Simulated scan of single mutants.
Amino acid sequence: MKLATLRLTGGTAAVRVDSDTTATIVDGFPDLSALLAAPDWTTLAENASGATVDLADADYAPVVPNPGKIICVGLNYATHIHEMGRDLPQYPTLFAKFKEALTGPYDDVIVPAYAAAELDWEAELAFVVGKQAYQVSEADGEQYIAGYSVINDYTMRDYQYRTLQWDQGKTFEKTSGFGPHLVTDYTLGTRIETRLEGEVMQSATTDDLVFTPAKLVEYISHIVTLQPGDVIITGTTGGVGHARKPARYIQDGQTVEVTIDGLGSVRNKTIVK
């Protein structure tokens, strides 16, 4: 099943995506954050019978626009770890992103000029928690995942490396394209790619993860209770601009597209103001 949050006249709505051209509104739920808070959200989505929406000109909001927590994982693809000159980690590297950093999968990303010196892409697989999880085992981890989506962990590298803490370079306002769909039946191993103005920058498969989604549910849920609608961003693969020799960054007017086969693409144009 595919779900999305669409911007419609007068607000937003949670929808079930029925085909490439149509979706059905899940009545009573303004977005997927609200829907996932319902214990029977799967049944509600499967049985939705609201108005039909034509997707030809659909305006997609961040797929889960109001997560209580966004937990990011750094250095989680073997290829990226090696290009950064590091050893494989024993434990996940965790940091936070705030919900204000999220934007729609096709929205323009507006960057203030003072933060535009070292703009970088990071193709990432995200998953969304489907039910409350505390001290969950890895073996049971998949049962707590509602579905998977695509995100660009858009990064201001100069801000990121001002201190030992990364958050400040990872959570600029409305910079992380997120969506377009939440896919409930995804399996690791498909192609993940970034294209800058059509040129492939990153290309790998999602089974290169050091810590799988189930392992991340186990690890994080032994630290804090995960709630329905929380988002876990699983890390990026090799090919980021900052690690290139010479470094390469996103320029004003350039479009970054992040694609994961089976999940879809986010495509955002950067505008520096």
Rank of each mutant, 00 (worst) to 15 (best):
S137N: 08
N66S: 13
K245A: 13
F127W: 06
E257K: 04
G177K: 00
T5A: 02
T255A: 00
G169M: 05
A214D: 09
Y249D: 01
F98K: 09
D54E: 12
T237H: 01
G11I: 14
R162S: 06
Q202W: 00
V26K: 03
F98D: 03
T42E: 10
R248E: 13
G68Q: 11
T206Y: 01
V64W: 05
S203Y: 00
T52N: 07
D261T: 15
A45N: 07
T171A: 07
I271D: 00
F172S: 08
V183G: 02
F98E: 04
N268H: 05
N152A: 00
S203W: 01
K97P: 02
T206P: 01
A247N: 13
G104H: 09
T206Q: 01
H222F: 06
T225N: 02
Y114L: 07
E46P: 07
T79N: 08
E199S: 06
V129P: 06
E138Q: 14
E118S: 14
Q135D: 10
A116F: 13
S149P: 14
S176A: 11
V111S: 04
M156N: 12
T52M: 06
T103W: 02
T5W: 04
R7C: 06
D107N: 15
V258M: 02
P65W: 10
E197F: 01
Q160T: 14
